[in-house]
Simulated assay, not measured.
Amino acid sequence: MRYVFKILRNFSFILILLLLMAIGLGYTLTGQGGRLDVGWLLTRLSPHFWAALGIGLSVGLAGLGVSVGMFVTGVSILGVSVKKPNAGSRSLISILLCEAFAVYGLITAVVLGDMLKDFSAEKARTDRRLFEAHMFSSYVMFAAGLTTGLTNMVCAVCLGMLGSSVALATATDESALNRTLIVEVFSSSLGLYGLLLSFYMHSLTSTQTSFPTPVWEEAGS
Rank of each mutant, 00 (worst) to 15 (best):
Y27A: 08
Y27F: 15
Y27S: 02
Y27M: 10
T28F: 14
T28D: 11
T28M: 11
T28A: 14
T28W: 14
L29R: 07
L29S: 09
T30N: 12
T30S: 12
T30K: 11
G31D: 00
G31I: 01
G31C: 01
G31V: 02
Q32T: 00
Q32I: 01
Q32N: 14
Q32S: 06
G33M: 05
G33Y: 03
G33F: 07
G34D: 14
G34V: 01
G34R: 11
R35L: 15
R35Q: 15
R35W: 07
L36V: 00
L36K: 05
L36Y: 00
D37N: 15
D37R: 08
D37Q: 12
D37T: 11
D37H: 10
G39L: 04
W40N: 05
L41N: 09
L41A: 12
L42A: 04
L42F: 08
L42T: 06
T43R: 06
R44T: 14
R44D: 08
L45C: 08
L45Q: 09
L45R: 10
S46P: 09
S46D: 15
S46H: 14
S46N: 15
S46G: 00
S46I: 08
S46Y: 08
P47K: 02
P47S: 13
P47D: 09
P47N: 11
H48A: 11
H48V: 13
H48F: 13
F49T: 06
F49H: 02
F49L: 05
F49A: 06
F49P: 03
F49S: 01
F49M: 12
F49I: 08
W50H: 03
W50Q: 01
W50A: 06
W50K: 04
A51Q: 09
A52G: 15
A52H: 07
A52P: 04
L53G: 04
L53Y: 05
L53A: 11
L53T: 13
L53V: 10
L53F: 13
G54S: 09
G54E: 07
G54I: 04
G54A: 09
G54P: 07
G54Y: 06
I55W: 04
I55M: 13
I55D: 00
I55C: 06
I55N: 10
G56I: 02
L57D: 08
L57R: 04
L57P: 06
